[in-house]
């Protein structure tokens, strides 16, 4: 019962985090939204009994991708231009 509720709630949170990552104008906040999406995706993989993919997703998606994105944002502009 609790597992089914988590199965319903987690994909909704993943979709919400993805929409925030697209819509936010502050690029560092968007990178953090991508990181949160990736962490919840790794939790979903763990619940679906794929711990291999969960470890890889938590290591690469939630940590290294965020570090690379923030380093790239620091070298360029922080805010997205209004076009």
């Amino acid at each position: 019962m609790i597992l089914e509720a988590i199965h319903i709630i987690l994909p909704i949170l993943i979709v919400i985090a993805s929409i925030y990552a697209v819509l936010l104008k502050d690029l560092i906040a968007a990178a953090i939204a991508v990181s949160a999406m990736s962490l919840m995706l790794s939790l979903e993989f763990y619940i679906l009994q794929a711990p291999d993919v969960a470890i890889a997703e938590a290591g690469i998606g939630a940590c290294l991708t965020t570090a690379i994105l923030i380093i790239a944002i620091k070298a360029t502009k922080r805010m997205e231009d209004e076009t």
Partner: peptide, 13 residues
Amino acid sequence: PGGGFQGGAVVAS
């Protein structure tokens, strides 16, 4: 569970 790729990603993190 895990392996070379996953553990390497954790250490690199």
